[in-house]
């Protein structure tokens, strides 16, 4: 599971001064649950996820992932998560098979297990036909499949997915949604961010609305509906974030 403790990150910007990208975030995400992050562009979703994946270090506060602290045991944290975002691209000159095997090796899997797992995943994602094709020769849908296989090759307990459907066509997006549902069935803890309301409505067990680095509200959709007094998630979101962002 994921638990954060006043997790904060500030950046220094020459023009704008200090920016609080994540401001004392507290959240908890349980196994077998899908936790959704809703926020506008620049709200702090990506920074929060980068903090959890230990790519960035927090300015203050910390988080525990599967019991491992992001500050003191970053390598163990990374071994326990599968991280996917629009910024995690693939090596263009490696083949699909080489890509997945490379990350499997970095995760410490032995060659027998790598063969078994890649065989499984290539079958599940229907990737056999382009197994030995170089990534730069693949379509964006095929690339997304390779990315998914890369993310879960080491069978992580926790998935952190930063806007995984961003810029993808309908079919590929649907595959991702199915993938997230399946992960939930496998009792994985899924944290994913989006700014598409219906995706969050359809998928999430719990939703957090993040704005200017602060978590404004957390809870199940029902709980959010009750507290805000509105039915649609987009209305709830606008109410929380403030109407000045509308035009």
């Amino acid at each position: 599971m994921i638990k954060t403790f006043n997790l904060s990150k500030t950046f220094q910007d020459k023009k704008r001064g200090e920016i609080r990208a994540v401001d004392k975030a507290n959240l908890e995400c349980q196994p077998g649950k899908i936790f959704g992050f809703l926020g506008l562009n620049g709200a702090g979703k990506t920074t929060l996820m980068r903090l959890l994946s230990t790519v960035l270090k927090p300015t203050s506060g910390t988080a525990k992932i599967n019991g491992f602290d992001i500050l003191s045991e970053p390598q163990k944290v990374r071994a326990n998560i599968g991280f996917l975002s629009s910024d995690t691209a693939l090596y263009p000159r490696l083949t699909a098979q080489e890509t997945v095997a490379y990350f499997a090796r970095l995760n410490g899997l032995d060659e027998d297990l790598i063969r078994k797992r890649t065989d499984e995943l290539f079958k599940v994602f229907d990737m056999e036909s382009f197994r030995d094709r170089r990534v730069d020769k693949l379509s964006s849908g095929m690339k997304q499949k390779v990315s998914l296989a890369r993310t879960i090759i080491h069978n992580p307990k926790i998935l952190i997915l930063d806007e995984p459907t961003l810029g993808l066509d309908v079919i590929t997006s649907r595959n991702i949604i199915q993938f997230i549902r399946k992960a939930k069935e496998e009792d994985k803890c899924v944290l994913f961010s989006t700014h598409i309301m219906y995706e969050a409505e359809k998928l999430c067990d719990e939703i957090a609305v993040i704005h200017q680095g602060k978590i404004l509200a957390v809870g199940t959709l029902e709980k959010l509906r009750d507290t805000i007094g509105l039915k649609n998630l987009d209305e709830i979101f606008v109410k929380l974030v403030g109407e000045e962002h509308e035009f």
């Binding site: 990374r78 071994a79 990350f103 970095l106």
Partner: peptide, 14 residues
Amino acid sequence: ERGTMETLLVSPAS
């Protein structure tokens, strides 16, 4: 530039 750096950084390699 290609965005592969972050993929590598989130792997368990230090």
